Amino acid sequence: EMEYEEITLERGNSGLGFSIAGGTDNPHIGDDPSIFITKIIPGGAAAQDGRLRVNDSILFVNEVDVREVTHSAAVEALKEAGSIVRLYVMRRKP
């Protein structure tokens, strides 16, 4: 069973403070093209906020749908998102 969360982060000097993997051209798990959080960087915006978790998958960055995009398109969406970034994420319920 999945749960969904909308997380708004303010981009810090060091960016959003997380790493991603995945994409249609580089699936992270099997042939699932989802964009997954692979690392939360200590002291970064995501770590300070505390809600984003490793293995969360990002569905939307602001209004941009990143469910079926290449890795570089997801990176671009995050880069272009401005200083306030709304992430709509999905994760397995614990």
Rank of each mutant, 00 (worst) to 15 (best):
A81Q: 05
P42Q: 10
G23R: 10
E10M: 08
L78W: 01
R53M: 04
G22Q: 14
I41N: 13
K39V: 14
A73E: 12
L78E: 01
L78P: 00
N13E: 10
D56M: 12
I41G: 06
V85Y: 02
L9M: 10
I40V: 15
H28M: 11
G30E: 08
Q48L: 05
R91E: 04
V64T: 06
H71E: 04
M2C: 02
L78N: 01
S14V: 15
E1P: 01
D32H: 11
S57Q: 11
G44S: 13
F60K: 15
V69W: 13
V64E: 13
G15N: 05
E3K: 13
D49W: 03
D31S: 06
T38L: 13
D65V: 14
V75C: 08
V61W: 01
K93E: 06
K39Y: 07
V54Y: 07
T38N: 15
N62P: 00
H71T: 07
A81S: 08
S83G: 11
P94Y: 02
H28W: 13
V64G: 11
E80S: 15
E1F: 01
G30V: 09
N62I: 00
I29C: 11
S72C: 11
D49R: 04
K93L: 02
Y88V: 02
M90S: 06
G30A: 09
A74Y: 04
E5D: 11
A47K: 12
L9C: 03
A77V: 07
R53S: 10
A46M: 04
S34D: 08
D31W: 04
E1I: 03
N13R: 13
R11F: 07
M2F: 04
D25G: 07
M90A: 07
E1S: 02
N55D: 09
I35L: 11
P33N: 10
A47R: 04
G17S: 12
Y88F: 01
T8A: 03
P27E: 06
Q48F: 11
N26D: 15
A77L: 06
V89C: 03
G23A: 12
S72A: 14
S83E: 10
F60S: 14
I40N: 15
I35K: 04
V69S: 15
V75F: 06
I20R: 00
N26T: 13
E63Y: 10
F18Y: 06
G23I: 06
I58C: 05
I7K: 00
T38E: 10
R11P: 08
L87M: 05
S57V: 10
G15M: 06
G43P: 08
A47D: 13
L16N: 08
R11W: 05
A46H: 01
N13Q: 12
V89K: 10
A81T: 05
I7M: 10
A81F: 05
D56P: 00
T70L: 07
G30S: 12
T38W: 04
K93R: 02
F36L: 12
A21H: 06
E63D: 11
F18M: 14
G30C: 11
V69P: 14
D49F: 03
Y4D: 05
N62Y: 02
A45K: 04
I84G: 13
N26G: 14
G12S: 12
G17C: 03
N62R: 03
E1L: 00
S83F: 06
F60L: 14
P33V: 07
A74R: 00
A73Q: 10
I37T: 06
V61R: 00
T8G: 04
G43C: 13
E68S: 09
N62C: 10
V54F: 15
E6T: 12
V69H: 15
A47L: 13
F60H: 11
A77N: 15
A77Q: 14
E3L: 09
S83Y: 03
L87K: 00
R86K: 13
R53H: 04
A46C: 10
I20F: 08
Y88W: 01
I7H: 02
G22E: 08
T70E: 09
D65W: 03
S19T: 01
D25W: 09
K93P: 04
T38C: 15
R86I: 15
D25L: 06
I29L: 12
K79W: 01
N55V: 13
G30L: 12
I7A: 03
G12F: 09
T8L: 08
P42S: 11
P27Q: 09
S57M: 12
S72N: 05
G50R: 09
G43V: 06
R53A: 06
I20M: 10
E80R: 10
L52G: 03
I35G: 01
